[in-house]
Nucleic acid binder design. Sequence first.
DNA 1: ATGAATGCAAAGGTTTTGCACCCCC
DNA 2: GGGGGTGCAAAACCTTTGCATTCAT
Lengths: 156, 156
Amino acid sequence: MHTLPCGRKRPSHSPKTNWRKILSEYLKSEGHRATGPRDKVAEVAFQQPSHFEIRTLVEEVQRRFPEISPATVYRSVKTLCDAGLLHETLQNHTGVTLYEVHEDGHHDHVVCIDCGEIFEFHDEGLENAQNKAVKSLSFDAESHKHVIYAHCTFKK
Amino acid sequence: MHTLPCGRKRPSHSPKTNWRKILSEYLKSEGHRATGPRDKVAEVAFQQPSHFEIRTLVEEVQRRFPEISPATVYRSVKTLCDAGLLHETLQNHTGVTLYEVHEDGHHDHVVCIDCGEIFEFHDEGLENAQNKAVKSLSFDAESHKHVIYAHCTFKK
DNA sequence: ATGAATGCAAAGGTTTTGCACCCCC
DNA sequence: GGGGGTGCAAAACCTTTGCATTCAT
């Protein structure tokens, strides 16, 4: 573990570098098998930009491994999500679901309505308020999505 | 306007009771027309439970008005969103997009991962933190989604 | 009358599935 | 060898679109 500027901790081996071990342990524990195609899909997935569409992943896998079928990509992504390595994160400005590598550190997202650019941000006060609110709900919260849709001011 | 227990104000005529006027003004202002099918779709939409899938709406419209085609339902929902009467709100536990009647008062959602039940909540501290965080981003925020996925403890 | 709105059916796009074959354990 | 995994193609879905027709203004 190391401490980030913002003060919170993050495991030093994120799934992005550590996924092989996590995946193989998950597969073993579930009675699933380590196979070539699934491994290649994972490899491509972890090389994607931080937020990606499954559509893009399918294309990239097909480009690099033409013998792997789209069905396998879909099935593998599902497995990677179950293994806790990937995460359906948010919907971009056109409503398409994006995936990201599941990191422990908490962050929220801003999506530009105009250009689709995605920004991550971390706000201590917001996080505290969220935790407090969740606690008061007396539900057993597992995850949450907080996405802000806005106009970014970078382009044009 | 009247004041709610939590202290915030809500317009006394929500779209739920007032939609005809709002819709007709919107249509006029955009050079669109008041038509039977669109009106019927709106009528059914505003009778739906607070969070509904478009799939359910299509079925209900077909049931009550078999002469109205699904395409018209889709087109009408788009119009109602443009008019500010409906809102694509969140995704339920299976990833399906839900619509709700657009109310002014701000609330967030809890979705039960197991049964799909949806709860609304309003938390003053959270809302303040959100506003503050958004402000500090120096984006021009237009909307945001905050959904908590949790296990509810009501059933079984 | 004129152009928006509709119904129908077809097209488009995405994701899932059935099944025979393959190959990891 | 047995059962999970894969590729392929078809199916299943969901949503949009083209077009002729209808209808509001």
